[in-house]
Design a protein around this nucleic acid. Structure first.
Length: 321
DNA sequence: TGAATTCTAACCCTTACGTCA
DNA sequence: GCTGACGTAAGGGTTAGAATT
């Protein structure tokens, strides 16, 4: 019974996928666990697509325009934060030159990678850091981290900054360096801060999407389990029918049985004269049909004709958001 | 032209700080 | 005031594609 096996394998495959989905938070770069998002991407993409294509498909999924476009117009001309006091700015710049954390730089130990980054592309980083602020709302002033001691002091973005970042993220979930720099200038932040914010924002989006995907796959699993049960029941019924039809093999094989919907009697439409007396003949049923009841239900009893089990396409139980 | 190397940007996991109940 | 949970900025490592040699 291949159909039964197919149904079972469907069930099994989905269960395996769900198993991966529930380990979504445990994956890392060194293994190839398929998070639900990746699973969903694999459902829509050929399996040999690269990770880069998956990243691109993320943009496609959320209908983001290309990320080389200019910043949205609403960013222009918005002055969110005031510039820091010159003394602070000078002190910060000086600290950075000495490799000491600035009040706004939360770096306690600047990594070589970070130094690389600053030495190469982000040549304006130091200047940006010198001019960036803690944000307009939480300038408590008493933090006392201007000494750049040991621990990394956490910068809290202001509501205005977060709002602009959020709006920008709705436009593009990734930024090219040009956009990043422009946004950083706009918000008086370092490009690195903008970059980190977008990275964390993408992670949050992905986490939420993972949760949604997990729920979706659960529903799919339930749906397929129910379908599996239904198919198994159908297979059992067909087996029973097959067994009972063996009895008719020893009789003169009528071609069809026809049940009169009005009198519920079954007629044999055959030329054989040995039909049971208890069954009405086909002409008798034809009389019933003349009464306006032309609902005949032929019952094929030739069990050697393969039953066509309709494989329905995988219909989604509920609409996804 | 193809291989090796370097650069860059994105991703991921983790850490640590700030806030709040 | 202390504490644990939670949110989030940021550090560090990895990876893949592009650029360069």
């Amino acid at each position: 019974m291949g159909d039964k096996d197919d149904a079972l394998s469907l069930d099994l495959d989905l269960s395996l996928s769900l198993g991966c989905a529930q380990n979504a938070n445990n994956n890392n770069n060194n293994n190839n666990n398929q998070t639900p998002l990746k699973v969903m991407n694999l459902m829509h993409n050929p399996p040999n697509q690269s990770l880069q294509n998956q990243r691109l498909s993320f943009n496609t999924l959320f209908h983001f325009p290309d990320r080389t476009s200019e910043p949205p117009s609403f960013l222009r001309g918005i002055a969110v934060n005031a510039a820091p006091p010159p003394s602070l700015a000078v002190a910060s710049a000086g600290d950075d030159e000495n490799g000491v954390s600035s009040p706004n730089s939360t770096v306690s130990s600047v990594s070589g990678k970070r130094l690389e980054r600053e030495a190469n592309g982000d040549d304006t980083d130091a200047a940006e850091r010198a001019s960036c602020t803690r944000g307009g709302s939480d300038d408590d002033g008493g933090d006392g981290d201007g000494d750049g001691e040991n621990s990394k002091k956490k910068l809290r973005l202001s509501k205005e900054q977060a709002l602009v970042l959020e709006d920008t993220f709705k436009e593009h979930n990734t930024l090219n360096p040009k956009q990043k720099q422009a946004l950083a200038n706009q918000l008086n932040l370092r490009p690195r801060q903008v970059e980190v914010w977008f990275q964390n924002r993408r992670a949050r989006t992905k986490l939420k999407q993972t949760e949604v995907d997990c729920e979706y796959l659960k529903r799919c699993c339930e749906h397929l389990s129910e379908e599996n049960r239904r198919l198994q029941k159908e297979v059992q019924e067909l087996r029973t029918l097959k067994l009972s039809s063996h009895l008719y093999m020893h009789m003169n094989p009528p071609t069809t049985l026809t049940m009169c919907p009005s009198c519920q009697r079954v007629g044999v439409s055959s030329t054989s004269s040995s039909s049971p007396a208890t069954m009405p003949s086909a002409p008798a049923l034809a009389n019933c049909n003349r009464l306006g009841l032309n609902i005949q239900r032929p019952v094929p009893i030739n069990h050697w004709v393969p039953m066509q089990i309709q494989h329905r396409p995988f219909d989604i139980p509920t609409s996804r958001p």
